[in-house]
Simulated assay, not measured.
Amino acid sequence: MHEPRDPGPSGEQQAGDGEVGYRGVTACSAVGISYRQLDYWARTALVVPSVRDASGSGTSRLYSFRDLVVLKVVKRLLDAGVSLQNIRKAIEALRSRGVDDLAGITLISDGTTVYECRSPEEVVDLLQGGQGVFGIAIGGAFKEIQGSLSHLPAEPVGVPEQEDAPVVEPEADSVGDELAARRARRRAG
């Protein structure tokens, strides 16, 4: 594994001529979520890895920098009590945006609905209407992810995955989940 290079102006990281991707375990560490959450969000198409999706046993997902920012936004919205249904609507609206476009967006929510604001005036208008309760400046999430990734490994995109390399699942989320821990130990050999 190698250390990621400094991100360019848009936050995307480059490795030589190609992009880099981040494995699930790295994504979890950078965003602050469990592997179980990441897997569930990928399987339910809430946040699907844009670099490489898992294509069967022995392959791993690779997430882009943009994917990690979206994962961070999902986590923050969930932590604030926004329903998964409303988060799906907000993420669907963000999915079509480019990295540079995302950096200028602030999401404001009243705990039920998520509003997209592109200027300070829109944020003030929403707050004056008595609706907004909390906000997420996506540009701030960019900086947090960049800081987290500075010490985490990345993989060059376009390099074929080694088929005979063992895939080791992360440990179970909690000590109480003995069945998941047994499965992880059995897979690890």
Rank of each mutant, 00 (worst) to 15 (best):
I33C: 08
V99S: 13
A30M: 05
K89D: 07
F134I: 14
V73D: 00
L68P: 01
S64H: 11
E19S: 14
A103L: 02
W41A: 03
G8Y: 01
D67T: 06
V114W: 02
P9I: 04
K89I: 04
Y40V: 09
A42C: 14
C28L: 07
R23N: 07
V74A: 00
D6F: 03
Q146N: 13
E12L: 04
E3D: 02
K143S: 09
A154I: 02
A172R: 11
T113K: 02
A80H: 12
S34N: 08
E116Y: 02
D101Q: 06
P4I: 04
P156G: 12
S109I: 05
K143P: 00
Q85H: 09
D53Y: 09
R95E: 15
V82D: 09
G32V: 07
S96H: 12
L126R: 13
D125F: 10
E116Q: 03
D17H: 15
D110H: 04
A184C: 01
G140K: 11
G98T: 12
Q85W: 11
V25L: 03
D6K: 09
P156C: 11
I138C: 01
E178M: 13
A188H: 13
E161C: 05
Q162F: 12
R88I: 04
R187W: 13
L78R: 14
G158D: 00
R36S: 08
D67M: 08
K143N: 08
A90F: 03
S29F: 08
A137F: 05
V99N: 13
L38S: 03
I138S: 02
P9S: 09
G11C: 01
S55F: 07
G140R: 10
C117K: 04
G21Y: 04
A27R: 02
I136H: 07
D110Q: 07
L62W: 11
T113W: 05
